[in-house]
Design a protein around this nucleic acid. Structure first.
Lengths: 341, 341
DNA sequence: GGCTCGAATGACAACGTTGTCTTTCGTTTA
DNA sequence: TAAACGAAAGACAACGTTGTCATTCGAGCC
């Protein structure tokens, strides 16, 4: 059978409590004994029983809650969380859910109770639902939010924010620099903050370049291929067409590209398209999509680190600071200067 | 604090062992008492402590090991496994890895030891590495394999097989029915069985239609976009071109589509393309890709059920039978009859 | 030299469950 | 009618760890 802490103790010639102390890096164990204990641990290939730990003491796992149709995003996040969990000695419990389900909060509570997680990593749109955050705070469940914004929305709990606004500003500036003036914006789901942040960056860039924002060129929609197709067809059916379209993410951009084809347009000659996300699609489409890239795996690592710091923090110690990330513009082949009128 | 089994016992007026029996559905508890216990459980919203369970008795979690760059595939699998885990009361431990890493086996052992999982769900290509399977059997670690094949490769352990061969046969037959005779085949990684199975189906269909297989039209490669681009460019640079290309999966097909564009070809008029997988790309590309679809989430559910049955099985009980799935042809817009010569 | 003190280590209970053994009690069997 | 039996329920140990308290021992102080 698997070696236990007592086997290690016997092998090292100390009491099993001392082994426990060594493993948990408590001070007040002599150097010499520490050496003997570590040696025995290595020899027996001992690994602490997580069930026993969890039974007696604090939780040793964290939860990852998400509701996102974008597989790539979820996998990248998951990889980052897992990596940091491994570093810090935590287990990961994943929980996909439906942000719009009426019982969401009790579902989350159930999951926390069942799996005894010590904290949660929340991604958009869950991380942006005030009711969820309030409920978690009320029940003293620790969490880190990953969300869209140019700064942390509050300092009640640490978060990782992604500055979509500045990235959208830069993308728009890039289009303007190419010579575009009639730029349409296809937004994503209204309740996603990334949608409004990207729109804000877009508008801000227009303003700074003295281009009057044209509300007819700003279309509401969802973060989906179908939405991209539908809105783009509406735009292209008009008598005066934009020369460029800023799609709020790559999936919408995929729809835009598709609709452009339906209308017989050549991208980018007749219409420039930009997306946001650097999804696999953007690298495999014809033409490759100009887009913005954010380091999702790294973001997830950071978020997990902030969470574990928070879990381990003793009363009185000061909280970790929120951290920010800035998506990078990736120029590919779906953009070029507008055709001469 | 959270209610324990003893709180439930007190509330129901029985011993805590009886509650344990009710929860674990052991026979030999009177109807009336069962009712009282369930009522108390509901009232207190009691949930068994998994750590305590894991400590005393059998493991209550399973592991999911994968090495697959295809996010969509992984997420669909994960969803299915998670769903069935939830049904059966198991926790899920996920473990991405590198199938070609030299220390793979000890990495898996470590993971099993650390997380005390009761069994593993293996997906290709891990499920097709004999050394891994042998090592697991030797250490008495239970597992289910999900793999490509027209039947279970052995009955030493249950598996879920996906009949890629028949699906590939049908796809090829469909192309032949459209009138194609010069069909190229772009294979995926050699060590993936799905690659050889699909090739076998392709060849078999050609043979049944008295079309001589042309080895120059069968190109080795990998399951990647880049591979698709490269091989297709090679094909299209030749003096006599195929009229259709069977890409071993959608990612290769994406590359094929891209390369066709580079050569100024119109798909499907100048070149028909089929993929395999029904990935999001195939639904978002222009034109939409004809492809084959397999119910990944359902497959994962079945695999997980087979695994939990195996874990719970007492000695002497007979093993669960392997189950098979058959991908469906999805006809979209990337295929049509070849142009008249 | 005896006393206190603190650091190092050990003994033991506790965590919440399940497995094993025991007890109880009503029913069947000789 | 008594013995045997089986079903239903309980008592208690055990799982492997950590927290709490106790013990040991040498150093420093009066």
């Amino acid at each position: 059978m698997k070696p236990t802490i007592k086997d290690v103790a016997k092998s090292a010639g100390v009491s099993f409590k001392t082994v426990s102390r060594v493993i948990n890096r408590e001070s007040s164990v002599g150097e010499e004994i520490q050496g003997k204990v570590w040696k025995a641990i290595k020899e027996l290939n001992y690994q602490p029983n997580l069930s026993a730990r969890g039974l007696r003491g604090s939780s040793s796992s964290i939860g990852f809650i998400y509701d996102n149709p974008n597989s790539n995003y979820v996998i990248e996040m998951q990889r980052g969380i897992l990596k940091e969990c491994h570093n810090q000695g935590y287990e990961l419990v994943i929980h996909p859910c439906d942000a719009k389900a009426p019982g969401l909060i009790s579902e989350i509570f159930n999951m926390v109770d069942r799996s005894r997680v010590g904290g949660l990593v929340l991604t958009p749109p869950i991380s942006e639902i005030p009711e969820v955050l309030d409920a978690l705070r009320e029940r003293n469940i620790r969490f880190v939010r990953i969300l869209s914004g140019s700064q942390a929305p509050d300092n009640r709990s640490p978060c990782v924010f992604v500055d979509d606004r500045t990235a959208a500003y830069r993308i728009t500036q890039y289009l303007i620099d190419l010579g575009h003036r009639d730029i349409a914006f296809l937004s994503g789901d209204e309740e996603h903050k990334s949608s409004s942040e990207r729109l804000a960056g877009f508008k801000s860039a227009l303003k700074d370049n003295q281009i009057k924002a044209n509300n007819r060129l700003i279309l509401k929609g969802e973060f989906s291929f179908e939405s991209g197709v539908k809105r783009t067809r509406q735009l292209l059916a008009r008598s005066s067409r934009p020369t460029a379209i800023f799609a709020c993410n790559d999936e919408i951009a995929a729809g835009t590209l598709f609709a452009a084809r339906l209308h017989g347009l050549d991208v980018p000659r007749d219409l420039s398209i930009v997306g946001f996300e650097d999804s696999p699609f953007s690298r495999q489409a014809w033409p490759n999509l100009t887009t913005a890239q954010q380091p999702n795996t790294e973001i997830a690592c950071t978020a997990t680190r902030l969470l574990t710091e928070q879990i381990r923090r003793k009363k009185g110690e000061k909280a970790s600071e929120s951290e920010g990330y800035y998506p990078q513009l990736i120029v590919r082949d779906s953009t070029c200067p507008p055709a001469a009128p």
